[in-house]
Design a protein around this nucleic acid. Structure first.
Lengths: 338, 338
DNA sequence: CTGAAAGCGCTTACAG
DNA sequence: CTGAAAGCGCTTACAG
């Protein structure tokens, strides 16, 4: 790379100090600098194609105007949709974003946090994986501005933006009850992450509320690694047992994708024999033989609020803010009344 | 944020110069520093929870170990899949990545390049939108290490990694000929971007090669903004005219997604009356009533090569490298023999 | 009103 | 062998 032109170069040409150049180019001491000098400086800056070195500026000001984003996996549509919203909102406020994928792995998340912090990001937006409580506590203690998205830890008082997963899951299950389903099942992740626990709790709550019995074999918890065989096995056993499911709620769009592919290959009628509801959105929901009923998360709002929270957060730790957003149940053919 | 501990703090505690601390912590003058001093420094660093400030380091070394990535839209699966591969490869080599979405807009791309450069990225990986020739030339002149991905400009000698789009499109069209299709259509983008021109050229080439006539009404070029109505209109007119299409090749996964949704609503049999082939991958291809035949791009290779190219590129401009990767045609039901 | 000097947190050529 | 000094490219409190 060719050497870039610096304040010093401009100062040398014009015959003033770098300080003066800095003032002029940042419009700092408006009017208090001689017109001709200011004009000359601007001209030379243009001619030498000057572009400020943000790194140097950051070292001095201790602000990088950079946000660190740690998602589960940038190639997952849920993550990348949020990444796009965060990018746009960050740009609007003059920030750029560095990203990393945790793969739901606590160790990798820890490494990522360290890397981003070493790069002096002004704040962190994190989808925390299971087992990262200590990392989050440490961030708090170090007074790093950050906000948790999608999930959070009830035991730690932090900023977060999340869906009201309990209500969303309750509403979806309730809907299945209302369309006359008797044996409603759920496939979700085996995890201690609160958003997933809430989804399970919402499902159980709705069953109880409507006097349905909870049947152990209709609640399947699969590994968060999204193992295809495990999900197919779960579907198969829910549909083969004596009290076979007549409805299934999927705990995530990844689970739904795998399960739907498998169900497509089975001789089961949707929704007649089996009603289905998905969590999150996915283009494939439109292409399943009966377009899927699903729980829509307000991603735009979620991303925007998270970005604003972490940027606005003042140097001095004010009190934390928790936001729970409401989901919307989009009812379509896969859960139509029989 | 609390003040972080710096080399100075450690030096003060131990009673040595910051230089010495730097040497020890970077294992620079191994053995040439007294054991006890080195040990003491390491201990204090640990106790004070020292983490090097990459910003300061960067200012001095003129390297940030950061890559700038400009995709079309991070929320598009094609972009985000590549973003993930680039992230992984960059991490392996000790780099992090800043991203931005151009939305296929030249002005936005220019702004993005400036922003990333001001942040002193060590290199740029770019999906250049239409009309960015001057920006790319400028990058070359400034001797910024960069690599173009997916598309490139034939008139500018740069590094790039792209698909052999001509061959891919030729093979797909040829395949449709071989399964007995007579009136093969294509819906692609109206664009001067070389990868899209090549796709069109491959289609036309295959027709010619097999003695098929090119029929103007069977080649539809739609706006790159992916307008739903425009794509639906294209499909409708290809299927309604007298010489109606009995096969369609889609020029991108976005076009395919919209077209497939529309075709699903029509009383047309796939593949009996209409064979279909898509470009790129998409989960929805599996869910269309006849799983779609598609052209698979070697994304992993593409991302990896691009990342290595931009990192390896030496300070002194060596000669550029161009890579064209071969696609794979995945044949499935949507183009099965009648 | 104007601008020289100090310093952000590092690295490393160079002097002793 | 050991380590003090200079400097990367900026900003801004402060002196004149």
């Amino acid at each position: 790379m060719k050497k870039k032109t610096s304040l010093k170069d401009i100062a040398a040409v014009v015959g003033v100090s770098t300080a003066l150049v800095s003032y002029v180019l940042n419009n700092k001491k408006e009017g208090r600098i001689r017109k001709e000098v200011a004009e000359k400086i601007r001209q030379v800056a243009l001619k030498l194609d000057y572009h400020p070195n943000q790194i140097a500026k950051s070292l001095k000001t201790n602000r990088t105007n950079t946000l660190g984003l740690i998602v589960a996996d940038i190639s997952n549509p849920f993550s990348s949709a949020l990444a796009r919203i965060i990018e746009d909102e960050a740009e609007r406020q003059g920030y750029t974003v560095i990203y990393g994928s945790s793969d739901e792995n606590a160790t990798k998340c820890g490494r990522l946090i360290e890397t981003l912090l070493n790069r002096q990001v002004d704040g962190l937006i994190i989808f925390p994986p299971e087992g990262t409580e200590d990392q989050i506590k440490r961030l708090k203690k170090r007074q790093i501005p950050f906000v948790l998205v999608d999930r959070y830890f009830p035991g730690i008082d932090t900023n977060y933006v999340s869906l009201d997963n309990y209500a969303a899951s309750f509403a979806a299950s309730q809907h299945l009850v209302e369309v006359g389903r008797k044996r409603i099942g759920m496939i979700t992740y085996k995890s201690s992450l609160v958003h997933l626990l809430e989804r399970k709790r919402g499902y159980l709550g709705a069953l109880k509320h409507s006097g349905r019995n909870f049947r152990k074999h209709l609640l399947k918890e699969v590994s968060i690694s999204n193992d295809v065989v495990e999900i197919e096995t779960a579907v198969r056993s829910m549909l083969s047992s004596t009290g076979r499911a007549d409805a299934i709620l999927f705990g995530s769009n990844r689970i739904a994708a795998t399960a739907l592919k498998y169900i497509s290959s089975l001789p089961v009628l949707v929704p007649q024999q089996l009603a289905l509801v998905g969590f999150d959105e996915s283009e494939i929901f439109d292409f399943f033989r009966s377009p899927l009923t699903f729980i829509r998360q307000p991603l735009a709002e979620m991303g925007r609020i998270a970005t604003c929270m972490v940027i606005e957060q003042p140097g001095t730790q004010k009190k934390t803010r928790q936001v729970q957003l409401a989901a919307e149940l989009i009812i379509r053919q896969s859960s139509a009344t029989e």
